[in-house]
C-alpha cells in the first residue's frame, strides 16, 4: 500500500536549512494498522503530510497503491488524495459554517467517484457513527467526541484505501478516546489501511505495528 524509500524533507528558515526527515524507509501493507510514535518536533506531522500528499518530498520515492506519488503532477496528487486517502486530525478540522451533514459530504463534492446516491451514503455513515440526530447541527454545537466521529465519517465517506490519523485522540478525554479507538478498530476490521501518528503509547498499542521516528529516521 505504502512504499517510502529514502524519503528526505528539509525546511528553510532564513538561511538555515534543517533536515526533518533524513532518509525514511517505510512499507505498509494493504489492511495494516501502523502507529508512528515520536516526540514533538521529530517530524511526525511532516511525515503525515508527505504520506497524505499534502506536501512533497525533497528527495526519495513514494509509492501509494503502486502509483509513484513523487512523480505525479499536482492535479493527480489532489485526485489521489481525494480518492485514496481519508484524514483524521487532532483538532477535527471541521468547517464551522457547514452542518455535520455538509462536512461529511465535502470529499464527495470534490470527488469523481460514483458512489451511488451521495446523500444516502452520508446518512448511512452518520447513522453508523451515531450522529443521525446531529446531522443539521453546526460543529460548535457538538462535543469533542462527536466532532471526531464526524471527522472519521468524513474520512470514510469516499471509501478510501488509506486512513491517516494525526493524534486522533489528542483533544479527547479517556472515555471518548476509547470510543474513537473502537471506531478505528472497526474501520480496520473492514479492511482499511490505517496509519496513526501519536505520542500516546495506549493509542499506539491498538496498532499492528509501532514505529518510532527519531532524528528524522524511522526505527
Amino acid at each position: 500500500m505504502i512504499e517510502l524509500k529514502d524519503a528526505q524533507k528539509h525546511f528553510r528558515s532564513g538561511n538555515l536549512k534543517s533536515a526533518v526527515l533524513r532518509g525514511v524507509n517505510l512499507n505498509v501493507k494493504q489492511g495494516e494498522y501502523v502507529a508512528i510514535m515520536g516526540k514533538s518536533g521529530f517530524g511526525k506531522s511532516t511525515m503525515l503530510n508527505l504520506l497524505g500528499t499534502l506536501d512533497v518530498l525533497d528527495s526519495g520515492e513514494y509509492k501509494l497503491t503502486g502509483k509513484s506519488v513523487h512523480k505525479m503532477s499536482r492535479g493527480k496528487r489532489v485526485r489521489l488524495r481525494n480518492e485514496e486517502i481519508g484524514f483524521v486530525f487532532q483538532h477535527f478540522q471541521l468547517i464551522p459554517n457547514l452542518s455535520v451533514y455538509q462536512n461529511v459530504l465535502l470529499p464527495l463534492t470534490y470527488g469523481r467517484k460514483r458512489l451511488g446516491k451521495k446523500k444516502a451514503r452520508v446518512l448511512a455513515l452518520l447513522d453508523e457513527m451515531g450522529l443521525s440526530d446531529k446531522r443539521n447541527q453546526k460543529p460548535d454545537r457538538l462535543s469533542g467526541g462527536e466532532k471526531q466521529r464526524v471527522a472519521i465519517a468524513r474520512a470514510l465517506v469516499n471509501e478510501p484505501g488509506l486512513i491517516l490519523a494525526d493524534e486522533p485522540t489528542g483533544s479527547l478525554d479517556e472515555e471518548t478516546t476509547e470510543s474513537i479507538l473502537g471506531l478505528f478498530d472497526r474501520v480496520h476490521e473492514n479492511g482499511a489501511t490505517i496509519v496513526v501518528i501519536t505520542h500516546d503509547q495506549e493509542v499506539a498499542e491498538r496498532a499492528d505495528r509501532i514505529l518510532h521516528l527519531q532524528n528524522g529516521v524511522l526505527v
Binding site: 489532489v78 485526485r79 488524495r81 480518492e83 484524514f87 478540522q93 471541521l94 468547517i95 465535502l106 470534490y110
Partner: peptide
C-alpha cells in the same frame, strides 16, 4: 485559511 486547507486536504483543486 484553515477552511481552504481543509478543502484542499479533502480534494479541492487549486482551480476549484
Amino acid at each position: 485559511t484553515r477552511e481552504i486547507g481543509i478543502r484542499k486536504a479533502l480534494g479541492a483543486t487549486t482551480f476549484e
